[in-house]
Amino acid sequence: MKAEYREEICDGCDQRFSIDDPLYEIKTDHQHLIIFRNRYFGRVLALDGVIQTTEADEFIYHEMMAHVPLLAHGRVHRVLIIGGGDGGLLREVLRHRDIRRVVQVEIDASVIDLCRRYLPNHSQGAFDDPRATVVIDDGMHFLEHTDERFDVILTDSTDPEGPAEVLFSRRYYAACQRCLAPGGILVTQNGVAFLQLDEVRVSAGHFNHLFRDWHFFGASVPTYVGGIMTFGWASDDPRPRQTDRKTLQERFTHSGIVTRYYTPQLHGAAFALPQYILDAIGKTSA
């Protein structure tokens, strides 16, 4: 009988991947990690029973998390990534030529080491880029002690359990606000809204108390079953979120970046949310 990897999505609902080729499994200092190959999704990374990323569709998540804030801002030179040990987000950020420095803070060095070895298509050499600095630390600890300021902060975390729980707290979002340069943007991973609506609702409440401008945008990522994958957006400057399509297209064309999911047209549409999410966050529109 073929081995399977079962992920419990919620009580009474799960998804299963056939393990066609087991590649590596370990209990790190922080979490249980497994990497295996699936015939359809390619190589798959799971942490503590939750599928984190697959070779087949990682580009959707990473392109949207990176290019939406960077192209909306238009003057990004310094980026902070919290989490993201697989390297996919770092890869997309570094595709922007104007980037001068990216600091990536990952709590578990094993994730980076093993993803570089078993999921090299995610990072594609990004960890060796001289503009990238990797810090092995707790993201909350780093934010509360750094003197650096960033144009964009990206939280590419696991779900709010275990080491990542604090990354969804008001304390964390306040620390991010402190570390943003004027006009800076925070983007966060906020789960699949249909199944994790409380996660979106709680983050919305924190954003509302801390930032002048905030909202959520979405993308459909097949691996993350249950509907729209939501990303939080928070800034003290309302202008980036209102960047018009013409300007986005000009910036995108000038960047020379070739994408598989992101487009300037999709950028604006991603902020148009279903009514059930708008109701949950107390908004009538974008």
Rank of each mutant, 00 (worst) to 15 (best):
F207Q: 05
P130I: 10
M64Q: 09
R37S: 13
T158A: 07
M1Y: 14
I81T: 05
R101W: 13
K27F: 09
Q31E: 12
T243H: 11
S110C: 00
T259L: 04
G218N: 09
Q124S: 05
I257L: 05
R100I: 01
D21Q: 15
A66E: 12
R241N: 05
D213C: 10
G87R: 00
K283I: 05
E7F: 11
R101T: 07
W233R: 03
R245C: 13
F150S: 08
D108Q: 01
V50F: 12
E58K: 05
L266S: 02
I51R: 01
H267P: 05
T146Y: 14
H145T: 13
P120D: 06
G139V: 04
E92S: 09
K2G: 08
G83T: 06
Y173D: 01
V76K: 07
C176G: 04
D151H: 04
K27C: 13
P240I: 11
L210Y: 05
V134G: 12
T54R: 04
P160G: 01
Y61C: 10
G184M: 08
C10Q: 14
G256M: 08
D20S: 10
D279N: 14
H30E: 12
P130D: 13
D29Y: 08
P238C: 07
G183V: 04
A234Y: 03
N121Q: 08
T53Y: 00
L210H: 00
